[in-house]
């Protein structure tokens, strides 16, 4: 199976909403990080976590990255 066949086999109608939700989460997390003056930990590290860790990265940022107080 080459890449093109795999690409065609993916049911995009069903997967697309999930990808959309994922990307909204990622963008919202990045916007919030940009506006956040003192995140819990270095900023560049959070950028890496949010972008590289699928789904979990933004959630981690929202729960741990923003200071609770």
């Amino acid at each position: 199976m080459n890449i093109q066949e795999i690409f065609q086999a993916v049911p995009w109608v069903i997967i697309a909403p999930i990808l959309l939700i994922e990307s909204i989460l990622l963008i919202v997390a990045l916007i919030d990080l940009a506006r956040n003056d003192s995140p819990n930990g270095p900023k560049w590290l959070w950028v890496l976590i949010i972008i590289l860790m699928n789904i979990i990265g933004p959630i981690l940022y929202f729960i741990i990255g923003r200071r609770q107080d």
Binding site: I18, I21, E22, I24, L25, V28, A29, D32, I55, P58, I59, F62
Partner: peptide, 12 residues
């Protein structure tokens, strides 16, 4: 942003 991310996470 809780009103955005919590519903999205629950959907996923």
């Amino acid at each position: 942003f809780k009103w955005i991310w919590v519903p999205l996470v629950f959907i996923l």
